[in-house]
């Protein structure tokens, strides 16, 4: 088991290692001394300097806080709306066209409007992130709740389920795999939107602001620090979401064919 996963790990890390090696080599052997990029060592030094100066971790913290705020707001409203729309086909017909049209508007096209309404502070950023988080959750929840098999509804009716039991013990667990797809996407979108919001509505501290300002000051080492951190945080969010999903949907793991 451990031998296999070790081999898997080695296979997966081969390309990153080669890239890192090539990156180091082009500077170490003097193949280039371009100022548009920096050697790997300098990125680490920049990270250490920033960290000591107390600039790095507050920025990361602020970004994460915004991402989570927007995610909770957007995914929460999305979940509630998805359930309401999914439970009643009449409300769904009422809202469906609007929802699917609004969804087509590119997320970044909302920015001018949001910045005018909510300013350039945290409020507008959180609203923007919430908007990004909202759509995947509402659409997937709607689909999951609307497609609970009739066969199961019959079982619930035979057992005399109350409307609340119908919801909590049938609709919600039956829709959970679909809802989770939405929440997972929503989390990814939230983090993307956080960087976008900070970059485009640059004010206050944050990873996006850090990237934006260091680019302006041509500090490529800091830009790369931001880039790497963004990737790692996205990766961590992904792992947390998948672990939560596995835990909540553990019944799906224990399935033999048919």
């Amino acid at each position: 088991m451990s031998v296999i996963s070790l081999r898997k790990l080695r296979r997966g890390t081969t390309i990153p290692a080669l890239i890192l090696l090539a990156w180091w080599a082009v500077y170490a052997f003097g193949i280039t001394d371009s100022k548009l990029f920096v050697p790997p060592g300098q990125v680490l030094t920049a990270a250490a300097t920033l960290s000591e100066a107390g600039e790095l971790w507050p920025a990361v913290g602020q970004s994460l806080l915004r991402a989570m705020g927007g995610f909770i707001l957007g995914a929460g409203i999305g979940l509630i709306m998805g359930v309401l729309l999914g439970m009643s086909s009449r409300t769904e017909r009422f809202f469906s066209l609007t929802l699917h049209s609004v969804k087509q508007v590119s997320l970044f096209a909302w920015l001018p409007l949001i910045s005018v309404w909510f300013g350039y502070e945290d409020g507008s950023k959180v609203v923007f992130i919430a908007l990004a988080a909202f759509f995947p959750v509402v659409l997937n929840t709607l689909e999951g709740v609307g497609n609970v098999p009739r066969d199961w509804v019959d079982v619930a009716r035979v057992s005399h389920f109350t409307p609340w039991q119908m919801f909590a013990r049938l609709v919600l667990p039956a829709a959970l795999p679909s809802i989770f797809n939405g929440i997972y996407l929503s989390l990814v979108f939230s983090w993307l939107a956080t960087l976008g919001a900070e970059y485009l509505l640059g004010s206050g501290i944050g990873l996006g602001t850090l990237l934006f300002e260091s680019r302006a000051e041509f500090k490529m080492d800091v830009v790369l620090v931001g880039l790497v951190l963004t990737g790692f945080i996205g990766f961590a969010l992904d792992i947390i979401a998948k672990a939560t999903e596995r835990r909540l949907l553990r019944w799906r793991e224990n399935t033999v064919g048919a």
Binding site: D151, D154, V155, V158, S159, H160, A174, L176, W251, T255
Partner: peptide, 29 residues
């Protein structure tokens, strides 16, 4: 009514409940 029970052609068990919990569904109310 709980006075009438039914077995369908497909088992129609809830996949998110264990065997014990699936049977207990009938006694919920």
């Amino acid at each position: 009514s709980l006075e009438r029970g039914i077995v369908f052609q497909e088992h129609r068990l809830f996949p998110w409940l264990t065997v014990e919990q699936n049977i207990a569904v009938s006694l919920l109310n």
